[in-house]
Design a protein around this nucleic acid. Structure first.
Lengths: 316, 316
DNA sequence: TATACTCGAGTGA
DNA sequence: GTCACTCGAGTAT
């Protein structure tokens, strides 16, 4: 059996309480992320004291980035635009919105800046939520390692590429772990997070290789097809409305992994860990587990399933 | 051959110019969508004139929705929270951010409201972009119909379910079309957009059925397995960074369609139309076209490919 | 540096 | 109510 705590498909489904908790923590974090933009707006308000007309903004090169945002351009959009597109956007902002606002033109430009940056805050948040999911998984793995008294080493998420000896008082190291190494009954194991795997030509969240610590070789182990053991997709988001959407993405990603490794005659195991699992996708996941398309799975918000998944990961 | 204008994979790739144009039109539209929120903020500012302290807000029930937003809660999040969660969020907003802001507490609450609503503006925009993509496809189909002098009828996107005779001066009807009907050499055809198909248990963007207009039967034709001809996924977004992400989603969606109809022994054709197509996914799409997993495809921003796709749709 | 990762803000059937 | 659609705001490798 793949996971003792997944006996029927519905065991995979996320509870309402977990969803509520997830959205609450998003709101808290969003307030922190918002802070600098509030400050920017206040600073802008000070900087443009003394102007009498929105046209005056055009003579203040320092506020161009602020105006570009206020004119509706995300940083992402700007990468695809030319300088004159951007200047045109600012002029349109002034003509269409700031001049009609009359004496309220300062509020108008600040309000528009904040609306556009609010979308940016959303983007930053989504990345954070993903990182937090990864940290939660790593923390769970470390807990299993510690409970079982397994010796391990870990590598930081920087360019040093040196293994650090795993201590028992390893508080908060999940925030800086790129890779883990340990031994099990089958041999030496290296687990890497978020790595581009050349055979697939794609990034993969969870990558398990057979290899001694020195075989990590500055990340080059990902090129050794024969060392690959298991790959997993991790989805840390809690939104039930996004659950099926992101499972569809993960499903294609996992298919690409299987196909790429089958093509080089080295089939690998695959797994899925998700925080937002709804009924209909749970049925698909469970069915893939039964027919062994998927080797293992867990709901990230279910500590039993997660522990079971981590122990399996440590043992294969 | 599937499409005369797709001879090699790279023919599918979106040009830089189209990407630029897409982001420019997003910025324009975003400014329009932002407008009401700017007005809300100005209205709030007026309403709270006369308050001296953020605590005063607690006695103004009318501004509770505004405060909820300012406290970091999206409308989506609120669906998953209880009343006391929401009240707690407002109290935290006041204690943690508004009181520390001192006499600037009104600006602070307005700025936070706008940042959170900015994320909402992003959400509204994404839905609009999707709708605009659908309208672009429908317009292209109508153009082909008109150029070829095909008689057609169409049904509005409402509960009436009556067929309207297609005129040649059909300006802007793409905005209200739910379904189209016409005849071709193979029989009577009904094309429905954005319908849940029971066999798949999922919504599908483009649904082509064999059926006389009366067989539409208030949408019940989607239950007639034998009437199904072709299903397509449409992705109207322009962002190249999202291209592979959304193609992965579409790919699983198309797989579900094929599997569901194969299971009931009625294989159907499938197709993909996308505005953001990058090289690597173009290779996958082209390969699926060659091995006939995918029956046809087009880049929504390439009018040759799109016209070819629409004519194919009218003829199958 | 090209490429593809993070996920929920909306919406509607 | 339930479910799953829209897509780009960021980010990183």
């Amino acid at each position: 059996m793949f996971n003792r705590f997944i006996k029927v498909a519905s065991d995979l489904v996320t509870t309402h309480d977990q969803i509520r908790a997830g959205f609450l923590s998003i709101a808290l974090e969003k307030n922190r992320v918002s802070d600098p933009y509030v400050k920017n707006a206040l600073a802008f308000k000070t900087m443009v004291q003394g102007t009498n007309d929105p046209e005056d903004f055009l003579n203040m090169p320092k506020i161009r980035p602020f105006l570009l945002t206020a004119s509706g351009l995300s940083d992402k959009a700007m990468q695809h635009l030319r300088d004159n597109d951007q200047t045109a956007a600012i002029k349109e902002l002034i003509e269409k919105f700031l001049k009609p606002a009359g004496e309220n033109y300062v509020d108008e430009v600040i309000y528009r800046y904040l609306l556009i940056k609010g979308d940016a805050v959303g983007g930053v948040m989504r990345n954070r939520i993903g990182v937090i999911g990864q940290e939660k998984l790593i923390r769970a793995i470390l807990s299993c390692i510690n409970v079982r008294g397994i010796n391990y080493s870990w590598m930081k998420n920087n360019k040093q590429h040196n293994w650090l000896y795993g201590e028992n008082n390893d508080i908060d190291i999940e925030k800086e772990i790129k890779a883990l190494h340990w031994m099990n009954k089958n041999g030496s194991r290296i687990l890497i997070f978020n790595m581009k795997v050349p055979v697939v030509k794609k990034n993969i969240d969870i990558c398990l290789f057979d290899g001694k610590s020195e075989e990590f070789n500055r990340g080059k182990i990902v090129q050794k097809i024969n060392k690959a053991i298991m790959f997993g997709e991790l989805k840390g988001g809690i939104d039930p409305a996004g659950a099926d959407e992101h499972w569809k993405t993960a499903n294609t990603a996992l298919d690409r992994i299987r196909e790429s490794f089958n093509k080089v005659n080295h089939p690998v195991m695959t797994s899925f860990v998700g925080a937002a699992i709804e009924n209909s996708m749970a049925v698909e996941i469970f069915s893939q587990l039964q027919n062994k398309k998927l080797t293992n799975a867990a709901n990230l918000t279910n500590s039993n399933q997660l522990t079971e998944y981590c122990n399996w990961l440590l043992d294969i």
